[in-house]
């Protein structure tokens, strides 16, 4: 007994080191699998508050870019509205919107902290449970997809960026219904890859890739990027595509969070059918 205590006292620094090192390894491994709960994240009042005050200063320098993006988005929406007007032929084009109840609700939010140079990137937003933000909601900008909500606190939330090796979603060609899996290899923040695209798909360089709407997170048809190059994989059955993103992930100012109001209904339905199997 005496010897054990002596041993502990003699090696207390090494034991302390080993304990703390294991603890940090646990945190690290948790951060590599996104659905585990995390203790250490930036959606808390201290880091959120510091990022908020820093970003309110930086905002002034970005006003010009934000204005330009808003103008472009406005122009695009106006064009869409005009097209809808010609199709319906109704002078009151808004009435068509009133008739349809939208499945998706868009909540604007400000980016407090963006990151893109690491292998697993996380973005911090100034919007939390107070603004009815919940985990697994999609995040987009007017140009394309950004990621989905990972953690929320009362006032802040973190986003699992598309530039994260844990991120995966379905993507399809705009021209046809062939789809594959969109993921990131952890290197260039402008390039993503789509794997497992059927060999029959009419793939052309320069074609647009968009979200497929198969998951309950993103609605169908949100732009992702254009095909830069493609090749058949080893099995010769599937294409692997390199996609250049529309979104400049290195400069994000304001984003939209997508709430799918039918999500509960969809997931309950899917769970029920799995139970029955």
């Amino acid at each position: 007994m005496q010897q054990i205590i002596n041993f502990l006292i003699r090696n207390k620094n090494f034991l302390l080191f080993a304990f703390l090192f294991c603890l940090s390894l646990v945190f690290t491994i948790q951060s590599h699998s996104y659905h585990k709960s995390k203790f250490i994240n930036s959606a808390n009042f201290l880091s959120g508050g510091i990022y908020e005050s820093a970003s309110s200063i930086q905002d002034y320098f970005h006003l010009k870019t934000y204005n330009k993006q808003l103008l472009e988005e406005n122009a695009r929406l106006r064009e869409k509205e005009a097209r809808l007007y010609t199709i319906t032929g109704s002078s009151d084009s808004l009435s068509i919107y009133d008739a349809i109840e939208s499945q998706f609700r868009y909540i604007p939010a400000k980016v407090l902290k963006n990151s893109y140079s690491k292998t697993d990137n996380i973005i911090t937003l100034k919007a939390g449970r107070r603004d009815s933000i919940l985990p697994e909601m999609g995040v987009i900008t007017s140009q394309g997809i950004v990621g989905f909500i990972e953690k929320t606190s009362t006032k802040y939330s973190t986003v699992l960026s598309i530039l994260n090796t844990n991120f995966k979603t379905n993507a399809k060609l705009r021209a046809s219904e062939h789809y594959g899996t969109l993921e990131w290899n952890g290197q260039d923040p402008n390039i993503m890859t789509v794997i497992d695209m059927q060999e029959q798909a009419p793939v052309k360089i320069g074609d647009t890739i968009e979200t497929s709407g198969q998951s309950a997170i993103f609605p169908k048809g949100i732009p992702i990027g254009t095909i830069e190059e493609f090749e058949l994989d080893n099995s010769k059955n599937f294409y692997t595509l390199s996609v250049r993103l529309f979104n400049d992930m290195t400069s994000l100012g304001h984003v939209y969070i997508i709430e799918n109001t039918d999500k509960n209904e969809i997931t309950t339905l899917q769970e029920n059918s799995i139970d029955e199997e």
Binding site: F17, L20, F21, L23, S24, L25, V26, F27, T28, I29, Q30, S31, H32, K38, I40, N41, S42, N44, L46, S47, I50, Y51, K113, S115, K118, D120, I122, T124, T158
Partner: peptide, 22 residues
């Protein structure tokens, strides 16, 4: 360890800075 963990909290990087500083 705490120094590294603070940086991890701000950078959302799990425990990598804590481990390296330790």
């Amino acid at each position: 360890f705490l120094t590294g963990l603070t940086i991890d909290m701000f950078g959302n990087s799990g425990g990598i800075h804590a481990a390296a500083s330790l």
